[in-house]
Nucleic acid binder design. Structure first.
Lengths: 159, 159
DNA sequence: ACTGGCTGGTTGCATAAGCAACTACTTCTA
DNA sequence: TAGAAGTAGTTGCTTATGCAACCAGCCAGT
């Protein structure tokens, strides 16, 4: 029943399982309550937190693919949660910002996010969580450093 | 340049970034060296570790979707890394086992896996790594427990 | 032994996500 | 200031991945 093999002790595997479970749980919550995907949620979180910005800024902030950002923005615009204003500085891009609807949703969304985070990691001390962050950060930087490329998006180095 | 927002402190987000980076790095390695995907690699790891078994056993051991297991097995069989023997106990299934080629590859693959794991997490003590495992395990069980379903495979509760 | 329900495996369909290519605009350089 | 080169955004294509549906073989209860 339980996988008692070498695989189950393999840390990258455990990391993948935990990430999938957590992401899946959160995705389900946002999808059921507000019909938002994770990319859409991330864009809303950043716009609500930092105010109007271009898609380029959003890709930097979220570390998502520019296509993912674009598609998320399109959906948010169609749902009238965000709107695009002309960018005076650069005619190629627009400034994205939350609408009143979007701001209202953002105000509901963030508390739930923090609540879920707290629930998922309850029972661990502040120090343990900081160590956890440090380990995650280190694993990520080691993985990226080993190849010099950004591996977070399915580009398996086979351009 | 750097994302200095609330999002970047959100633990599920950090977890996702780390997992993607690590998985991407490992996937690249296996793909470049042996042309194996992660599901294929996992199946080989389990078969090499625990010997012949059915696809059903493999889904239990790897915690992957049965379709993913099936497709991985099909590829391994076509590449003559694994073969299917009739299952005396149950006419619906077959027993999968590594071929000589498969065993030879397995013998190369596992050391590299452990080496990569060591590299990714070098600089942390044994205790820190055990705590890391515990945190990952806890996050996973909390996420699964919250919904009572298996969320690891993209089923976002919308059956 | 037969029938209904169950389970392992397989296939097809739908969706998500990434890359390449393209357009429109900007910026650099001569 | 004209042309070259670079960049933001967009669209289309390809691949990966999950679920639903299906088939074949197993196993109760009768």
């Amino acid at each position: 029943m339980q996988p008692a093999s070498l695989l189950s002790r393999f840390l990258p595997y455990q990391l993948s399982l935990a990430s999938n479970a957590v992401s899946g749980r959160i995705a389900m919550e946002y999808r059921q309550r507000w019909g938002l995907s994770i990319p859409e949620w991330r864009v809303m979180a950043v716009l609500g937190d930092a105010g109007a910005m271009t898609q380029r800024d959003l890709t930097k902030r979220t570390l998502m693919d520019k296509v993912a950002v674009n598609r998320a923005c399109k959906v948010l615009e169609e749902r009238e949660l965000a709107q695009r204003a002309p960018n005076e500085q650069d005619g190629r891009s627009h400034l994205l910002e939350l609408t009143e609807n979007g701001k209202a949703m953002h105000a509901e969304i963030m508390p739930l996010a923090l609540e879920m985070e707290a629930k998922l990691f309850e029972g661990f001390s502040h120090d343990e969580l900081e160590l956890f962050r440090a380990l995650l950060e280190r694993a990520r930087s080691m993985a990226e450093e080993m190849s010099g490329e950004d591996l977070s998006k399915g580009n398996y180095g086979l351009k």
